[in-house]
Protein backbone atom coordinates (compact mmCIF):
# COMPACT_ATOMS: atom_id res chain seq x y z
CA UNK A 1 0.00 0.00 0.00
CA UNK A 2 2.74 2.34 1.02
CA UNK A 3 4.71 1.38 -2.02
CA UNK A 4 1.92 2.17 -4.38
CA UNK A 5 1.52 5.56 -2.82
CA UNK A 6 5.14 6.31 -2.99
CA UNK A 7 5.63 5.47 -6.64
CA UNK A 8 6.15 8.79 -8.40
CA UNK A 9 3.26 9.49 -10.73
CA UNK A 10 5.36 9.75 -13.90
CA UNK A 11 6.75 6.28 -13.28
CA UNK A 12 3.25 4.90 -13.31
CA UNK A 13 2.35 6.77 -16.45
CA UNK A 14 5.28 5.25 -18.34
CA UNK A 15 3.96 1.70 -18.09
CA UNK A 16 2.17 1.23 -21.37
CA UNK A 17 -1.35 2.56 -21.40
CA UNK A 18 -2.58 -0.59 -23.12
CA UNK A 19 -1.40 -2.98 -20.45
CA UNK A 20 -2.59 -0.66 -17.71
CA UNK A 21 -5.97 -0.45 -19.39
CA UNK A 22 -6.09 -4.21 -19.61
CA UNK A 23 -5.17 -4.46 -15.96
CA UNK A 24 -7.84 -1.93 -15.11
CA UNK A 25 -10.45 -3.91 -17.02
CA UNK A 26 -9.38 -7.10 -15.31
CA UNK A 27 -9.52 -5.49 -11.91
CA UNK A 28 -12.83 -3.87 -12.63
CA UNK A 29 -14.29 -7.17 -13.75
CA UNK A 30 -13.07 -8.88 -10.61
CA UNK A 31 -14.36 -6.13 -8.38
CA UNK A 32 -17.69 -5.99 -10.16
CA UNK A 33 -18.03 -9.72 -9.86
CA UNK A 34 -17.24 -9.67 -6.17
CA UNK A 35 -19.52 -6.77 -5.42
CA UNK A 36 -22.26 -8.33 -7.51
CA UNK A 37 -21.95 -11.60 -5.64
CA UNK A 38 -22.14 -9.83 -2.30
CA UNK A 39 -25.20 -7.85 -3.34
CA UNK A 40 -26.77 -10.95 -4.85
CA UNK A 41 -26.18 -12.74 -1.57
CA UNK A 42 -27.82 -9.88 0.30
CA UNK A 43 -30.72 -9.94 -2.12
CA UNK A 44 -31.25 -13.68 -1.84
CA UNK A 45 -30.96 -13.55 1.91
CA UNK A 46 -33.45 -10.70 1.92
CA UNK A 47 -35.83 -12.77 -0.18
CA UNK A 48 -35.62 -15.73 2.12
CA UNK A 49 -35.89 -13.67 5.27
CA UNK A 50 -38.91 -11.89 3.82
CA UNK A 51 -41.04 -14.84 4.86
CA UNK A 52 -42.43 -13.45 8.09
CA UNK A 53 -42.92 -16.13 10.72
CA UNK A 54 -46.52 -16.70 11.71
CA UNK A 55 -46.11 -15.45 15.27
CA UNK A 56 -44.57 -12.11 14.28
CA UNK A 57 -47.14 -9.39 13.81
CA UNK A 58 -46.51 -6.00 12.23
CA UNK A 59 -47.59 -2.77 13.92
CA UNK A 60 -50.99 -1.26 13.13
CA UNK A 61 -51.27 0.27 9.70
CA UNK A 62 -48.27 -1.62 8.32
CA UNK A 63 -48.29 -1.92 4.55
CA UNK A 64 -48.56 -5.40 3.07
CA UNK A 65 -45.34 -7.26 3.86
CA UNK A 66 -43.77 -6.78 0.42
CA UNK A 67 -44.40 -3.03 0.40
CA UNK A 68 -43.48 -2.78 4.04
CA UNK A 69 -40.01 -4.13 3.33
CA UNK A 70 -39.42 -1.48 0.70
CA UNK A 71 -40.69 1.31 2.92
CA UNK A 72 -39.54 0.65 6.48
CA UNK A 73 -36.08 2.11 7.10
CA UNK A 74 -35.82 0.34 10.47
CA UNK A 75 -35.52 3.53 12.47
CA UNK A 76 -37.50 2.30 15.45
CA UNK A 77 -39.45 5.53 15.89
CA UNK A 78 -42.65 3.47 16.05
CA UNK A 79 -41.21 1.28 18.77
CA UNK A 80 -39.98 4.31 20.73
CA UNK A 81 -43.43 5.88 20.75
CA UNK A 82 -45.31 2.73 21.73
CA UNK A 83 -46.28 3.37 25.35
CA UNK A 84 -46.59 -0.33 26.15
CA UNK A 85 -43.27 -1.43 24.66
CA UNK A 86 -45.25 -3.74 22.45
CA UNK A 87 -43.10 -3.15 19.41
CA UNK A 88 -39.53 -4.29 19.15
CA UNK A 89 -37.02 -4.19 16.33
CA UNK A 90 -35.90 -7.55 15.01
CA UNK A 91 -32.28 -8.18 15.84
CA UNK A 92 -29.92 -10.07 13.59
CA UNK A 93 -30.86 -13.69 14.13
CA UNK A 94 -34.52 -13.00 14.92
CA UNK A 95 -36.92 -14.35 12.35
CA UNK A 96 -38.37 -11.11 10.89
CA UNK A 97 -36.22 -8.97 8.62
CA UNK A 98 -33.38 -7.42 10.66
CA UNK A 99 -34.33 -4.11 12.20
CA UNK A 100 -38.01 -4.16 11.28
CA UNK A 101 -40.61 -3.61 14.00
CA UNK A 102 -42.87 -6.44 15.11
CA UNK A 103 -44.57 -7.86 18.13
CA UNK A 104 -45.64 -11.24 19.41
CA UNK A 105 -49.17 -11.50 20.72
CA UNK A 106 -48.30 -14.00 23.43
CA UNK A 107 -45.48 -11.69 24.56
CA UNK A 108 -46.78 -8.13 24.67
CA UNK A 109 -49.94 -7.59 22.64
CA UNK A 110 -51.03 -4.29 21.15
CA UNK A 111 -53.24 -2.24 23.45
CA UNK A 112 -54.98 -0.51 20.56
CA UNK A 113 -54.14 3.06 21.59
CA UNK A 114 -56.80 5.43 20.40
CA UNK A 115 -54.27 7.95 19.06
CA UNK A 116 -52.10 5.21 17.49
CA UNK A 117 -48.76 6.84 18.37
CA UNK A 118 -46.73 4.22 16.49
CA UNK A 119 -48.38 5.10 13.20
CA UNK A 120 -48.05 8.82 13.80
CA UNK A 121 -44.33 8.39 14.51
CA UNK A 122 -43.50 6.54 11.30
CA UNK A 123 -41.62 8.97 9.03
CA UNK A 124 -41.64 6.86 5.89
CA UNK A 125 -45.16 5.62 5.42
CA UNK A 126 -44.33 2.01 6.19
CA UNK A 127 -47.14 2.50 8.69
CA UNK A 128 -49.94 4.12 6.76
CA UNK A 129 -50.95 7.48 8.24
CA UNK A 130 -54.34 6.92 6.66
CA UNK A 131 -55.11 4.69 9.61
CA UNK A 132 -56.68 7.01 12.16
CA UNK A 133 -59.20 4.66 13.72
CA UNK A 134 -57.48 1.82 15.52
CA UNK A 135 -60.52 -0.44 15.15
CA UNK A 136 -59.77 -0.42 11.42
CA UNK A 137 -56.29 -1.90 12.00
CA UNK A 138 -55.72 -5.40 10.67
CA UNK A 139 -52.49 -6.61 12.23
CA UNK A 140 -53.62 -10.19 11.92
CA UNK A 141 -56.66 -12.25 12.62
CA UNK A 142 -57.40 -14.28 15.73
CA UNK A 143 -58.17 -17.93 15.08
CA UNK A 144 -59.42 -20.32 17.72
CA UNK A 145 -56.97 -22.81 16.49
CA UNK A 146 -57.18 -25.68 18.95
CA UNK A 147 -60.63 -27.13 19.48
CA UNK A 148 -59.23 -29.91 21.60
CA UNK A 149 -57.71 -27.88 24.41
CA UNK A 150 -59.83 -24.71 24.47
CA UNK A 151 -61.77 -24.91 27.72
CA UNK A 152 -64.96 -23.61 26.15
CA UNK A 153 -64.76 -26.35 23.56
CA UNK A 154 -64.57 -28.79 26.46
CA UNK A 155 -67.89 -27.42 27.66
CA UNK A 156 -66.51 -25.15 30.40
CA UNK A 157 -67.12 -21.45 30.70
CA UNK A 158 -63.67 -19.90 30.46
CA UNK A 159 -64.56 -17.06 28.10
CA UNK A 160 -61.37 -15.21 28.97
CA UNK A 161 -60.42 -14.42 25.40
CA UNK A 162 -63.90 -13.12 24.78
CA UNK A 163 -63.84 -10.95 27.92
CA UNK A 164 -60.49 -9.28 27.20
CA UNK A 165 -61.20 -8.46 23.58
CA UNK A 166 -61.26 -4.67 23.14
CA UNK A 167 -63.86 -5.20 20.42
CA UNK A 168 -65.91 -7.61 22.54
CA UNK A 169 -69.14 -8.95 21.03
CA UNK A 170 -68.07 -7.84 17.60
CA UNK A 171 -64.62 -9.33 17.06
CA UNK A 172 -65.34 -12.31 19.29
CA UNK A 173 -68.77 -13.62 20.05
CA UNK A 174 -69.79 -16.68 22.02
CA UNK A 175 -71.84 -18.92 19.76
CA UNK A 176 -74.15 -21.34 21.48
CA UNK A 177 -74.12 -24.90 20.29
CA UNK A 178 -75.18 -28.29 21.53
CA UNK A 179 -72.76 -30.25 23.66
CA UNK A 180 -72.94 -33.76 22.19
CA UNK A 181 -70.92 -35.25 25.03
CA UNK A 182 -73.32 -34.51 27.86
CA UNK A 183 -76.22 -34.17 25.43
CA UNK A 184 -77.90 -31.71 27.73
CA UNK A 185 -75.56 -28.74 28.02
CA UNK A 186 -74.63 -25.92 25.74
CA UNK A 187 -71.15 -25.05 24.56
CA UNK A 188 -70.36 -21.36 24.11
CA UNK A 189 -67.76 -21.29 21.40
CA UNK A 190 -65.56 -18.20 21.05
CA UNK A 191 -65.93 -17.24 17.43
CA UNK A 192 -63.85 -14.56 15.72
CA UNK A 193 -65.26 -12.28 13.05
CA UNK A 194 -62.83 -10.88 10.55
CA UNK A 195 -64.94 -7.80 9.96
CA UNK A 196 -64.04 -6.55 13.40
CA UNK A 197 -60.93 -8.34 14.71
CA UNK A 198 -57.92 -5.99 14.60
CA UNK A 199 -55.38 -8.68 15.38
CA UNK A 200 -54.28 -6.90 18.55
CA UNK A 201 -53.43 -10.21 20.18
CA UNK A 202 -54.99 -9.54 23.57
CA UNK A 203 -57.02 -12.74 23.36
CA UNK A 204 -53.97 -14.84 22.60
CA UNK A 205 -52.06 -13.16 25.42
CA UNK A 206 -54.90 -13.81 27.87
CA UNK A 207 -55.73 -17.40 26.95
CA UNK A 208 -55.55 -19.29 30.22
CA UNK A 209 -53.86 -22.39 28.85
CA UNK A 210 -50.44 -22.75 30.49
CA UNK A 211 -48.16 -22.79 27.44
CA UNK A 212 -49.41 -22.21 23.95
CA UNK A 213 -52.72 -20.43 23.58
CA UNK A 214 -55.71 -22.16 22.02
CA UNK A 215 -56.56 -18.92 20.26
CA UNK A 216 -53.81 -17.40 18.15
CA UNK A 217 -53.45 -14.31 16.05
CA UNK A 218 -52.13 -15.23 12.64
CA UNK A 219 -51.21 -13.14 9.63
CA UNK A 220 -54.35 -12.62 7.54
CA UNK A 221 -52.90 -14.63 4.72
CA UNK A 222 -52.56 -17.67 6.95
CA UNK A 223 -55.77 -17.17 8.84
CA UNK A 224 -58.15 -16.76 5.96
CA UNK A 225 -59.20 -18.87 3.04
CA UNK A 226 -59.81 -17.02 -0.17
CA UNK A 227 -63.41 -16.32 -0.93
CA UNK A 228 -65.10 -18.61 -3.43
CA UNK A 229 -66.14 -15.86 -5.80
CA UNK A 230 -67.68 -18.26 -8.29
CA UNK A 231 -70.07 -19.50 -5.65
CA UNK A 232 -73.09 -17.24 -5.56
CA UNK A 233 -74.62 -17.07 -2.14
CA UNK A 234 -78.35 -17.24 -2.82
CA UNK A 235 -79.26 -15.48 0.39
CA UNK A 236 -76.95 -12.59 -0.34
CA UNK A 237 -78.22 -12.27 -3.89
CA UNK A 238 -81.75 -12.33 -2.59
CA UNK A 239 -81.07 -9.60 -0.09
CA UNK A 240 -79.27 -7.46 -2.63
CA UNK A 241 -82.11 -7.82 -5.13
CA UNK A 242 -84.76 -7.26 -2.48
CA UNK A 243 -86.37 -10.61 -3.24
CA UNK A 244 -85.76 -13.97 -4.79
CA UNK A 245 -84.23 -13.77 -8.24
CA UNK A 246 -86.31 -16.67 -9.52
CA UNK A 247 -89.67 -15.54 -8.22
CA UNK A 248 -91.84 -17.00 -5.48
CA UNK A 249 -91.11 -20.61 -4.73
CA UNK A 250 -93.83 -23.22 -4.59
CA UNK A 251 -93.40 -24.99 -1.30
CA UNK A 252 -94.78 -28.48 -1.52
CA UNK A 253 -96.29 -29.77 1.71
CA UNK A 254 -94.50 -32.61 3.47
CA UNK A 255 -96.79 -35.38 4.49
CA UNK A 256 -97.53 -35.30 8.22
CA UNK A 257 -95.85 -31.88 8.61
CA UNK A 258 -98.34 -29.70 6.88
CA UNK A 259 -98.73 -27.37 9.84
CA UNK A 260 -95.03 -26.78 10.35
CA UNK A 261 -92.66 -24.30 8.78
CA UNK A 262 -90.52 -25.59 5.95
CA UNK A 263 -87.65 -27.59 7.34
CA UNK A 264 -88.91 -27.63 10.93
CA UNK A 265 -88.61 -31.25 11.99
CA UNK A 266 -88.95 -30.82 15.72
CA UNK A 267 -91.45 -32.99 17.56
CA UNK A 268 -94.13 -31.38 19.65
CA UNK A 269 -95.02 -32.83 23.01
CA UNK A 270 -97.21 -35.89 22.47
CA UNK A 271 -96.15 -36.30 18.86
CA UNK A 272 -94.62 -39.59 17.85
CA UNK A 273 -91.88 -39.83 15.34
CA UNK A 274 -92.81 -40.98 11.84
CA UNK A 275 -92.28 -44.69 11.38
CA UNK A 276 -88.71 -45.32 10.26
CA UNK A 277 -88.07 -47.54 7.25
CA UNK A 278 -87.21 -51.02 8.37
CA UNK A 279 -83.57 -51.42 9.17
CA UNK A 280 -81.71 -53.35 6.51
CA UNK A 281 -79.34 -55.95 7.93
CA UNK A 282 -75.73 -55.23 7.08
CA UNK A 283 -74.40 -57.24 4.20
CA UNK A 284 -72.29 -60.18 5.36
CA UNK A 285 -68.61 -59.54 5.07
CA UNK A 286 -66.97 -60.63 1.85
CA UNK A 287 -70.13 -60.35 -0.21
CA UNK A 288 -68.61 -57.67 -2.38
CA UNK A 289 -70.25 -54.44 -3.41
CA UNK A 290 -74.03 -54.36 -3.23
CA UNK A 291 -75.77 -51.03 -3.52
CA UNK A 292 -79.19 -52.69 -2.85
CA UNK A 293 -80.59 -50.73 -5.68
CA UNK A 294 -83.66 -52.41 -7.28
CA UNK A 295 -85.22 -51.13 -10.43
Amino acid sequence: MKDANDTPAPARATTGTRSSRRRFLKEAAGVAGGAGLLALGAGLYARQAAALPATALRPPGALAEGDFLSACVRCGLCARDCPYDTLKLARLGDAPATGTPYFEARGVPCEMCEDIPCVVACPTGALDHGLTDITQARMGLAVLIDHETCLNFLGLRCDVCYRVCPVIDKAITLEKSHNPRSDRHAMLLPTVHSDYCTGCGKCEKACVLPGEAAIKVLPLKLAQGSRAEHYRRGWEEKEAAGGSLIGEQVELPVRGMEDKAYGDTRLRPGETPLPQPEAVPAAPAGSGLDSRWKP
Partner: peptide, 16 residues
Protein backbone atom coordinates in the same frame (compact mmCIF):
# COMPACT_ATOMS: atom_id res chain seq x y z
CA UNK B 1 -25.39 -3.37 -6.83
CA UNK B 2 -27.00 -2.43 -3.52
CA UNK B 3 -29.37 -0.12 -5.38
CA UNK B 4 -29.87 -2.76 -8.06
CA UNK B 5 -30.63 -5.40 -5.45
CA UNK B 6 -33.17 -3.05 -3.86
CA UNK B 7 -34.82 -2.48 -7.21
CA UNK B 8 -34.87 -6.16 -8.13
CA UNK B 9 -35.99 -7.51 -4.77
CA UNK B 10 -38.34 -4.61 -4.03
CA UNK B 11 -36.96 -4.38 -0.52
CA UNK B 12 -34.11 -2.75 1.36
CA UNK B 13 -31.99 -5.83 0.75
CA UNK B 14 -28.76 -4.27 1.95
CA UNK B 15 -30.29 -3.20 5.24
CA UNK B 16 -30.52 -6.85 6.20
Amino acid sequence: FVLLAAALSGSLAWEW
